[in-house]
Structure formats: structure tokens, C-alpha cells
Design a binder for these strands. Structure first.
Lengths: 99, 99
DNA sequence: CCACTATATAGCGATATTACTATGTCTTCG
DNA sequence: CGAAGACATAGTAATATCGCTATATAGTGG
């Protein structure tokens, strides 16, 4: 991995390395959602939610489509879901395993 | 994923979301290495290399052992290797695929 | 056009990260 | 002990990120 590729990879990781952004990705795993519903689901305000969504959209992690006045976001890069799964394993190394 | 877990997961991701740290993880995938060799392999200085290593050690990603005057680092959390693989896929979505 | 809803963005202070230099701590060797 | 090698850490200035408020933009219905 040369420096340029590493820098790009780091940018992608940084784009999801944030509590709220991880929760957004998780929320969108099931289906697309509009900004307001995402904000409500996370208990966050509209402005900050929109900001986080656009950060991830800029990095190619999410994409959006307009439907009337609402804008629906969905996951564009399926790899982030796998990253999320890996991090889950890190956080709960032995869920429901023996003890 | 509640906020507390999301925060922890984000911390882990942030720990590797850096070009040099990604390269370090990649270098350590094969085997453990001492600080000086890692710095040489990456073409970086000793001080910054040591700093990055300790950031990842603090987060439980790496671990180290002393052998004489040298300190060898190795990967402690195998999940970061999987995260790295996912990011590779992101960066090269269709390597040698048809076209 | 006006009012209202939905979303985006500008601006800002607080905090964190980065990269670097200098220096401190161990360890080995003579 | 004293010097040299290997590694860690303190201090710092530049930059980036965060969370927030206020405001701007775009669409909808009357």
C-alpha cells in the first residue's frame, strides 16, 4: 500500500470514525431514510445530521435521491457495512459465547 | 448500537484512520517488527513512528514485547486486519475484474 | 406570491490531531 | 561508570474536527 492509497483509505475510515456517523450507517443498513427520520431515529438535530450525511456522501459512502421535498440517503459503498461488522466484533469479541 | 458503543467503535476506527497507521498495520500483518525497522520500512522518522505505534497500542490494536534494547510490535486485534481488507475493496472495487 | 416544511450551509469558538524538534529513559557494551 | 543505540515523551505551532446557531435554499400547497 503506497502512501497515496493509504491516504485515501484513511480518508474513508475517517469518514465513518465518528459515533453519530456509525449510527447513521447502521440505521441505513436496513433501508434508505430521509434526513428528518434519521435525525429523529438518532435523537439529533437536523443541522448536524445533514452535515454528517454530507460528509459521508462526499466520501462516496452514501448517496441520495430527492423525492419531493425530502431527500433520501442510502448506503452507496457496501464495504462500510463490512467494516462496521468488524468493529462490532472488536467491541464484543465473544457475544453470547461461553464464559 | 447505543451511543456508548458507537463512541467506542469510533475510537477504534480513528486509531487506524491515518495513512501511516494503516501502513504500519499492513507491515505487521506478516510478522512482528521492531520500531526502527518499521520506521525504515515506511521511510519515516523514529519519533513519529513510535508515537503512532503507541496510539494503536493504547487502543488495544497492537501489543509489544521487549527483546534486549529493541521493542517488537505485533497486531493484537485481528479484526483490524479485516477492516483493512474491507478498505482495500473500497479503494480497488474491481481489481483485475472483467472489462 | 406567501407560508410552511425539509434540507443545506455559513460562521464560530472549543477541542483534537498532526508533524516536528528536542530531550528523557532504558539497555547494552566496553 | 560512560558512550552509544533504541525507543518514548514533552512541548509546540499549524491545521482539522466538532457541535452549535443562524440563515439560506428548495419544494409544496393555498
Amino acid at each position: 500500500m503506497d502512501k497515496k492509497l493509504a491516504t485515501h483509505a484513511a480518508d474513508v475510515l475517517k469518514a465513518i470514525a465518528h459515533p453519530m456517523r456509525l449510527q447513521i450507517v447502521e440505521a441505513l443498513e436496513g433501508s434508505e431514510m430521509c434526513v428528518g427520520d434519521i435525525a429523529d431515529a438518532l435523537g439529533e438535530k437536523q443541522a448536524i445530521t445533514s452535515q454528517q450525511l454530507n460528509i459521508m456522501k462526499d466520501k462516496g459512502i452514501l448517496t441520495s435521491r430527492r423525492e419531493g421535498a425530502k431527500i433520501f440517503y442510502r448506503i452507496e459503498d457496501p464495504n462500510v457495512v463490512r467494516v462496521l461488522a468488524c468493529v462490532y466484533n472488536h467491541c464484543e469479541p465473544r457475544k453470547r459465547g461461553r464464559r
